[in-house]
Simulated assay, not measured.
Amino acid sequence: MPAAAQDLRALARVLADDSRLEDDGRDVVLDLSLTQAVPYRVFVLDEPERVVLDFREVNWAALGPDFDDADQVTAVAMGRGDAGWSRMVLSLDRPMEIAQAGMETDDTDGTAHVRLRLSPVSADEFAELAAHTPPGVRLPPVPVADTAPPARPEGGPIMIALDPGHGGVDPGAQRRGQDEADLMLVFAIELREVLLRSGLFDVVLTREGDWFVSLPERVTIARSAGAQAFLSLHADALEAGRARGATVYTLSETASDAASEALAEAHDRADLLAGVDLAGSDDEVAGVLLDLARLENAPRSEALADHIVAALDNAGANLHRHPRLEAGFSVLKAADIPSVLIELGFLSDAEDLANLMDATWREQAQEAIRDALVAWAAEDQAQSALLRQ
């Protein structure tokens, strides 16, 4: 049966030096040290035999190959699980039960320690345990088809997809030893915390570490989480000319200007680094239907962008002289999710770069985006009610 910890909501990081997976006689013991306590659940799955640990949420980036030293565990996989959860899966070479599962929190520094002990059982006993999957868990967590996201329960949290641009083989813009991919991941993780703590939002990130995610997969991750809005986060650089300040883009096949068109082309080219071919993804009929859906959804995206620009301006964030632009960014082409791309600044501008590295500036910008989402969601709900009438 699942084991659950305190009802907390925050991002935790693994402390690799104090974490290990090893054999202990006939048992397997997992010790996982985290920077803070988060809710978790543990259960087993059959065919093949696995143990699943879901955390809300954990960044796995610190764990290396030396972490797994258990002969009875054939593989360890870590990554994004169901919406708002991070998942670790232990593949077993024999049926085992969860003999112990617990989390202890250090009162002095807030760190948490999870201990899991697995003991051998018969195949029949394991099958019985595997029949008790926690309710509401989607297994396995796989991308879904290009269909509308599940409806949000009335009064429930609004699911926001945050998309930190670039990552892995594609570092994005680079200036003065700073990578766009790293800066945007930090901003996205912090923004997630701001949104979660408001109590009004749930959040999914398209990536939680320095790894490559293709443009179509970013949209699929958002859709599979049931996102009601998609925010792609960037901070580019210009090789020539001067530009500074934040810009918010919505989708258009015709770019607002030559610079916007060049940015969109550069972003799309990033997929070629991983051998992803964006061409020919829609047949003619499907393409027409998707274009119609995007046309219907476009005013919602534009309203979201307008709220973000206004909130950033009210917060005193530096804005580009043309803060609202349009371009054909592939990552904005979800037909059913209001989507915007936020260029938080230009790494080629010293002041913009300094702002992105300043925790106080980031917090002000993140709170402005939160306020924009709150205002947009209220307006969007009112508009939806009028349409239903």
Rank of each mutant, 00 (worst) to 15 (best):
55 F>D: 01
111 T>F: 01
15 L>S: 15
122 S>A: 15
117 R>D: 14
198 S>A: 15
287 G>A: 07
166 H>F: 03
256 S>W: 03
309 V>L: 05
348 S>W: 04
13 R>D: 11
387 L>P: 01
115 R>F: 02
249 Y>A: 00
61 A>N: 14
196 L>G: 06
142 V>A: 15
64 G>L: 09
338 P>R: 02
376 W>N: 05
34 L>A: 03
167 G>N: 06
26 R>Y: 11
111 T>R: 14
8 L>F: 06
186 V>Q: 13
200 L>E: 11
208 E>Q: 08
227 A>H: 05
235 A>R: 08
255 A>Y: 08
16 A>P: 10
160 I>T: 12
268 D>E: 08
277 D>K: 01
239 E>A: 15
241 G>D: 08
316 G>Y: 14
128 E>K: 13
16 A>G: 12
18 D>C: 10
145 A>W: 09
179 D>V: 09
21 L>G: 03
52 V>M: 07
350 A>T: 11
56 R>Q: 11
336 D>I: 10
16 A>R: 12
17 D>Y: 14
25 G>D: 08
93 D>C: 07
329 F>H: 01
372 A>T: 03
165 G>V: 00
302 E>H: 07
360 T>D: 15
28 V>W: 06
105 T>Y: 00
323 P>Y: 00
369 I>Q: 02
274 A>F: 03
64 G>Y: 06
75 A>S: 10
269 R>W: 06
106 D>K: 02
123 A>M: 10
347 L>S: 04
308 I>H: 04
24 D>Q: 15
152 R>E: 10
348 S>R: 08
48 P>I: 02
229 A>W: 00
194 V>P: 09
338 P>I: 01
59 N>S: 15
115 R>L: 07
70 A>M: 07
42 V>G: 03
3 A>L: 13
16 A>F: 09
229 A>E: 03
79 G>R: 04
289 L>E: 10
56 R>P: 01
148 A>H: 10
342 I>F: 04
97 E>C: 11
386 L>K: 05
86 S>N: 01
30 L>G: 09
181 A>Q: 15
236 D>G: 03
